[in-house]
Each structure stands twice: as structure tokens, then as C-alpha cells.
């Protein structure tokens, strides 16, 4: 079986659900004839028709609001935001409606929609094309935030997101869209949401990360191994709600925690993880928690973007800090 890239995992999941569930509709800007600016929906309109893979007018608030409406009618819209930098008009719909439709109607209506968006930096893109603002969405009650970091998880988690009865913001780390290939069977088997994935086991330090940063983190872990340091690397995968149990179990074993994310530091998801570990496992910790994050600055244009993104060196140093006496 030939391997597929992360973005092809997305395409395969969309095609699978379009084939097996008539209520699934893919919509967004340039998702039809063009197959998406990153090609995530390539070939889907030819295969499933213009009514199920829809090019919409250019208006993100409209795309999200229309998805709320369709979802309330029992459809399963999977809407694409072209870049996370353009997602903000949709935030109103997600926070004011998608996340609370079930709650405020006491279960009479629900909102099984998925809002997909490529996110993150490191691809030499123009302004507003490189930010990581997953924390904004993690702060919205009633909305799940899911981030895959491998082709298999892109496929399995997107299937789960589409089938989930509640709204999911599904963020795709575009820097690793085509970085690695992996064999993924198109078997329609979803992966569980709301759980972390342990990417590497280790006893010395727990390192929690997600998205494209899993690659820098795994590289750091592998380099640290030659220094005799064994990291346990956890991919958060579902950013909200948080699977804190898996992290607590790991911290109980290692006594040390490093959190790595590409997003800005202040009120980033790392702060929530650190707070929960402090609340529930302070006495397991043998060293202060370390965060390796983007800075509280505007994401710079691409000449400086690699200075903004956490590097392998920064991650390794943070791990070492937790091991200092």
C-alpha cells in the first residue's frame, strides 16, 4: 500500500464520509473546481457533484453561519476556512451559535458541523497566513478543537469529527501537510476524540505538544536520548476538551513536564495544561513546568518566522532545565 500525506488523509476522510453519509456536505471558498488552495478537496466535486461539494461566495461568517443552519436541519456540513487568518468572521457564529445551540434549546436542536482550517507557520506564506490561534477556539464552550499531527490521525480524527454530534473546529497543521507519508487504510474506522496520543514513551520528562510541533519535539526527544534523557512525547490531538488524565499519568511517572506550542505564550493552551497539572499533580512534580512557545508578538512575516517558531534547541534546553537540580 502506498503511503499518503497528512493532507491526503483529510481528503480520504472527506471522500469516505461523502460516500457513506448523504447528510455530509463539503463547502467553502475554492473547494470545488479548484479542489482547495492546498488541494484538500481535490477531485471531490468531480466525484460527488456541485451540490455536495460546494463553492460558496467569499464570506467566512456566511460559511460558518450557513453551516450552523444546515447542521440544525440534521445535515453534516464540513466547511473549509481557506486559512486560519481568515477564520475570525466565523468566530461570531461559533461562539454565539454553534457552541450553544444544543444548550440553549435544551437539546431540541444541535450543531454537528466541522469547521476545517489549515493553520500554523513555517511555509513562507504571506501575511495572515501563518498564525496559530487554537486557544481562541478552545475557550469557546461547547466546541471541540481537534488537531491531527499524522496522516493516520488526520484520517481517523476527521472521520470522528464529522460523525461527532457536536461542532468541531478541525485545525490542520499545514507545515506538515506533505512532510511525511504513512500507510493509512481507507477502512472508515474513526479514531477516538477527547484523548491524547502517546507518540513516544519515556521515563524522564513528559513533553506535551500538538500539530506541526510534534515533529520538532520528536526530533528533540531523539537527540536527547543520546544524552541519556528519555522523553515521553504526548500529542494532545484534542485541544479541547482536554484529556488531562493521560498527562497526569505520565507526569506521575516522570515528575517533569514541558509543554511545546507554536501559538503565542499568554493564555495559550499550554497555560491550561500547566494549570490543571498544578491543580491535580503538584506533588508529583520534581521541577517547575516549562513552556516552549511562540512569542506574544504578531506572527512575523516569513523572513523572521523561523525565529518565532520554537526550535529543537529551545525544546531540548527546556527539557534539560527540568532535570537540573
Amino acid at each position: 500500500m502506498p503511503g499518503i500525506a497528512l493532507i491526503e488523509g483529510v481528503t480520504m476522510a472527506l471522500a469516505h464520509e461523502l460516500s457513506h453519509d448523504e447528510s455530509v456536505v463539503v463547502l467553502g471558498e475554492d473547494v470545488g473546481v479548484n479542489g482547495g488552495v492546498f488541494r484538500a478537496t481535490a477531485g471531490l466535486q468531480q466525484r460527488f457533484g456541485k451540490e455536495r461539494v460546494m463553492d460558496t461566495p467569499l464570506a467566512e461568517g456566511m460559511i460558518a453561519g450557513m453551516s450552523v443552519g444546515m447542521a440544525a436541519q440534521g445535515m453534516r456540513p464540513v466547511a473549509e476556512m481557506q486559512f486560519m487568518g481568515f477564520i475570525y468572521p466565523a468566530v461570531d457564529q461559533m461562539i454565539s451559535h454553534a457552541g450553544r445551540l444544543r444548550h440553549r434549546t435544551r437539546g431540541r436542536l444541535s450543531c454537528p458541523m466541522v469547521l476545517r482550517a489549515p493553520y500554523g507557520g513555517g511555509i513562507h506564506a504571506p501575511e495572515h497566513h501563518s498564525e496559530s490561534t487554537e486557544a481562541l477556539f478552545a475557550h469557546i464552550p461547547g466546541v471541540r478543537v481537534v488537531i491531527p499531527s499524522s496522516p493516520a490521525r488526520a484520517y481517523g480524527l476527521l472521520l470522528a469529527a464529522i460523525r461527532d454530534p457536536d461542532p468541531v473546529v478541525f485545525l490542520e497543521p499545514k507545515r506538515i501537510y506533505r512532510l511525511v507519508k504513512q500507510e493509512v487504510e481507507d477502512d472508515g474506522v474513526a479514531l477516538p476524540l477527547d484523548v491524547c496520543y502517546i507518540l513516544r514513551e519515556g521515563d524522564d520528562v513528559t513533553v506535551v505538544t500538538w500539530g506541526a510541533m510534534t515533529h520538532e519535539t520528536l526530533k528533540a526527544a531523539s537527540e536527547l536520548e543520546s544524552d541519556g534523557i528519555n522523553c515521553e512525547v504526548i500529542d494532545l490531538a484534542t485541544i479541547s476538551p482536554l484529556d488531562i488524565e493521560t498527562i497526569l499519568e505520565s507526569v506521575e511517572k516522570t515528575g517533569r513536564l514541558v509543554i511545546v506550542h507554536e501559538a503565542a505564550r499568554t493564555c495559550g493552551v499550554g497555560a491550561e495544561i500547566a494549570a490543571q497539572v498544578a491543580e491535580q499533580a503538584l506533588y508529583d512534580l520534581e521541577a517547575p513546568i516549562q513552556r516552549v512557545t511562540g512569542y506574544d508578538t504578531v506572527m512575523p512575516l516569513f523572513r523572521l518566522e523561523m525565529e518565532y517558531l520554537p526550535s529543537v534547541a529551545r525544546i531540548k534546553d527546556a527539557v534539560k532545565v527540568t532535570l537540573e537540580e
Binding site: 475554492d30 473546481v33 461566495p57 467569499l58
Partner: peptide
């Protein structure tokens, strides 16, 4: 044209 979307799909 708005990338790949022709005017008649816009309005």
C-alpha cells in the same frame, strides 16, 4: 474571478 470562483457564483 475570486481565485477559482467566477462572479456568477459570487452573486
Amino acid at each position: 474571478w475570486a481565485i477559482s470562483v467566477p462572479l456568477h457564483l459570487q452573486t
